[in-house]
């Protein structure tokens, strides 16, 4: 059997596996460091935030998206450009609130949870909490304060993963972003 099996597609997949497995190692390390799931969720969110405030620059440099004019446009860019670019998946944007300030991202598959089976003693762990922080941190850098949370999670038995994003307010440009 040749070892040179389909190098290019393997490389890309391997790369996402490296990310997935490293994230897994981080989550399990946090579970060891903190007594309860809520603390782990908070830490993951905080780390995600720190990543988000830097990731946005990388994103703006790589993609050719201009300034978003409204929240709907933001949602589309997040789903169709950002998620595709960094995680290789394109969630669908649905469940808009009547006021147009809240929507859901539905992910059929979530690369962060590939191969993961939650043990019974982690019922309150929101495994992919990092994503909430990343979204919050990156949007803060473009003057948007948002609230992000998981509404559905395949690891907790739901059919899909649903991230709910709510626009809170516009951030004035001269206020420095808080680094946690």
């Amino acid at each position: 059997m040749s070892r040179q099996s389909n190098r290019t597609s393997d490389s890309k997949k391997m790369n996402s596996e490296l990310f997935t497995l490293t994230y897994g190692a981080l989550v399990t390390q946090l579970c060891k460091d903190y007594e309860n799931d809520e603390e782990v969720n908070k830490q993951l969110d905080k780390m995600g935030y720190n990543i988000g405030v830097r990731l946005i620059e990388d994103f703006l440099a790589r993609s050719s998206v201009g300034r978003c004019h409204d929240f709907r446009e933001t949602a589309d860019v997040i789903a169709k450009v950002a998620f595709k670019m960094y995680l290789g998946v394109t969630p669908s944007v649905t469940n808009w609130s009547p006021a147009g300030d809240e929507f859901s991202l539905i992910l059929e598959s979530n690369p962060l949870v590939d191969f993961v089976e939650l043990p019974d003693n982690h019922n309150n762990l929101v495994y992919s909490s990092l994503l909430c922080g990343v979204l919050r941190g990156s949007l803060e850098m473009v003057q948007m304060a948002v609230d992000v949370r998981f509404a559905q999670d395949t690891l907790r038995g739901d059919n899909v993963t649903e991230i709910r994003m709510k626009f809170i307010k516009r951030i004035e440009e001269n206020l420095p972003a808080g680094d946690e």
Binding site: K12, N15, S16, L18, F19, T22, Y23, L26, D33, Q43, M47, N50, I51, R54, L55, D58, R62, M85, Y86, L87, G88
Partner: peptide, 22 residues
């Protein structure tokens, strides 16, 4: 590749976390 960037950011954050908790 973009997902390479994502890993690098995560790797950095893991390092920061380990040293901060120290």
């Amino acid at each position: 590749m973009a997902d390479e960037a994502l890993f690098q950011f995560l790797h950095n954050e893991v390092i920061q976390y380990v040293y901060k908790s120290a």
